[in-house]
């Protein structure tokens, strides 16, 4: 039997969850024996070259590109996993939800913020090539069907390892108390 294929992506996240994947340390050598990676920042494959078994999503959806990538993952992966608080709940980016408008967000980022010092023409980027910012940040499962959720900010490396091994080997997942955390 061929190895299961994994794809990963970071949407509106900070790459902390991907760092946590790498935090499985030397077990990454075992992981390479168990699986093959396809589209992922880990191997820098930019587009899907084949159908995948497991898609790991970091981050929620804050713009139209995130939605597009998430839907591509749903189309190309048999199983999708929301990894981390942002994918699962919207996370810290979702703290803007119902609090500030997109306009206020952009003005703060490009015009009013104390660290803005080189924007004399008061330009807010608005090129049609740029993705649209959404009205609020959406958890992934509110956009597409998500099969499994791994909480944490970042999720503990042991949680990611246990989940992947359980999924690949078909054995029940080991969930010790100290690895399931929301922070």
């Amino acid at each position: 039997m061929s190895k299961p294929i994994i794809a990963t992506t970071s949407l509106a996240g900070c790459f902390g969850c991907h760092m946590s994947i790498l935090d499985i340390d030397e077990r990454i050598l075992d992981l390479i024996e168990l699986v093959e990676f396809n589209k992922s920042p880990i191997d820098d494959i930019k587009t899907f070259t084949k159908k995948c078994d497991i898609g790991i999503i970091e981050g929620g959806c804050c713009n139209s590109e995130n939605i597009h990538v998430l839907k591509t993952f749903r189309e190309n992966c048999k199983i999708l996993i929301s990894l981390g608080e942002c994918a699962r709940t919207g996370g810290l980016p979702a703290m803007r939800n119902n609090k500030v408008t997109v306009k206020e967000c952009l003005e703060e980022a490009y015009l009013n913020c104390v660290t803005v010092d080189d924007n004399p023409d008061n330009i807010i980027p608005n090129d049609e090539e740029l993705p649209f910012i959404l009205d609020k940040v959406y958890p992934c499962h509110e956009i597409v069907k998500i099969d499994y959720f791994l909480p944490g900010c970042a999720p503990r490396a042991d949680l990611i390892w246990n989940a992947l091994v359980a999924l690949i080997t078909g054995k029940p997942m080991d969930l010790p108390y100290e690895v399931v955390k929301y922070d």
Binding site: R88, G90, N97, F149, L175, V180, Y182
Partner: peptide, 20 residues
């Protein structure tokens, strides 16, 4: 949070309200 840990809650089945 501790109760959610104890009950092994991995995700919420209801939509987030994001109150303001």
């Amino acid at each position: 949070q501790a109760l959610a840990y104890r009950f092994g809650i991995l995700n919420q089945r209801f939509p987030y309200q994001f109150p303001s």
